[in-house]
Write a protein that binds this DNA or RNA. Structure first.
Lengths: 219, 219
DNA sequence: CCTACCGATCGGTAGG
DNA sequence: CCTACCGATCGGTAGG
């Protein structure tokens, strides 16, 4: 509740003045730090196994201070989930399908999406995969809506691939299989491993696309 | 601790007598009830969001009673995870690869595995997918070991498929993609839906196997 | 398996 | 953003 009134204040600020005050900027930074720190802990231990005190300590704050930025632990989870999903989605939507052949389009989106999923540094995205389900009520519905936009986008990618004969199917189930395989990488990828995120993306693309054409290239 | 001594007692019983006492049987039943009830709740809300009181109430017990059967909440989770993984694994291992062609073998195992994964009634398996990671120490390591046996088994299935030219690859990554797609079904399957678990299994098999051969059959 | 209970912890808040 | 704190809850236990 305190947080909401703050946001209003900040919004009024940008409306009435040339630029926001420095105090607001630093608040926004702290807020984003909290989101990132919380996301890392949520991913490691799970939402409910992570205490707000864990988050505070990892952010060099005292136990009550996260609640200056977020009204509740739920809100902190939601902020991370929503922003990272929207960031990732708009990144994918920014690619123009008409500017490249279907296979390149498929490859480009897979690289971008997986790059975000495996971005363990500033990465809030990897947390989303498992933890969004702990959101309740309104928050949960909003996330479900965003996930549907992902599915629709990927559906389009597969339809282009199918038209080009590079993939046998573009129905909802086929897309679900693919997205599961994509998200599943988060669970077995290790940062120091043999393959980079980009190489894994290419590998996944190869695995799925153009079986007949590809079968010659495989030694 | 109390639980361990009970198990010992029960084992001695079966050694010394023709059959176990009725009291032991009913204890075992209650124990299995607890595992099933807990699994359902763990799956719905997650391990840490489920309290031992929730489990007790759903099992028509008072709050302290689950600890008569299990020394800790962790032990209760582990019992469900381990037993259901081993059950599922031995079911898959019971199929003789030599008794049928590669595609049938692939299909049979996929049906069996998915059938278990979607068994929401007596189903402890669906819970395992997300919740095993909340196990700690020794328990966790044991589960990781069992999971490796799954991967090895499926690796063998893919190798047979590859030899028959029905699949382009049988490396560890290809198997990981497949297992992710398989486990991912748990997250979107709805019991009253258009397809039965068996049909979904067949669909998944079709999606992956023999792209060139299959492409004719698709309208 | 129940009753009664404990110590610890947790999310969150008031007031500065 | 900190200090000091609260009410609620939680996993687990003693004793029957």
């Amino acid at each position: 509740m305190r947080y909401i009134s703050r946001i209003r204040k900040s919004t009024e600020g940008t409306e009435n003045m040339a630029r926001p005050k420095r105090a607001d900027i630093s608040d926004v930074n702290r807020r984003n730090e909290l989101i990132a720190t919380a996301a890392k802990l949520f991913k490691e231990k799970g939402f409910h196994a992570t205490t707000t005190r864990d988050i505070a300590k990892a952010s060099n704050m005292k136990s009550g201070s996260p609640f200056y930025h977020f009204a509740s632990k739920q809100d902190l989870l939601f902020a991370g989930v929503e922003s990272s999903l929207l960031d990732c989605l708009s990144m994918l939507e920014a690619v123009d399908p008409a500017s490249m052949p279907p296979l390149d389009y498929f490859r480009t989106l897979t690289r971008l999406h997986l790059g975000r999923l495996l971005d363990t540094d500033s990465g809030v995205v990897p947390m989303v995969v498992d933890e969004w389900r702990h959101l309740e009520g309104e928050h949960r519905e909003q996330v479900v809506a965003i996930r549907r936009r992902f599915e629709r986008l990927w559906r389009g990618v597969f339809e282009r691939m199918k038209e080009a004969g590079l993939v046998p199917r573009a129905d909802a189930r086929a897309v679900a299989y693919f997205l599961s395989a994509l998200q599943g990488v988060v669970s077995w990828y290790r940062p120091g491993g043999a393959l980079s995120p980009e190489q894994i993306a290419d590998d996944l693309v190869d695995w799925l696309s153009g079986f007949p054409e590809r079968s010659d290239k495989i030694r």
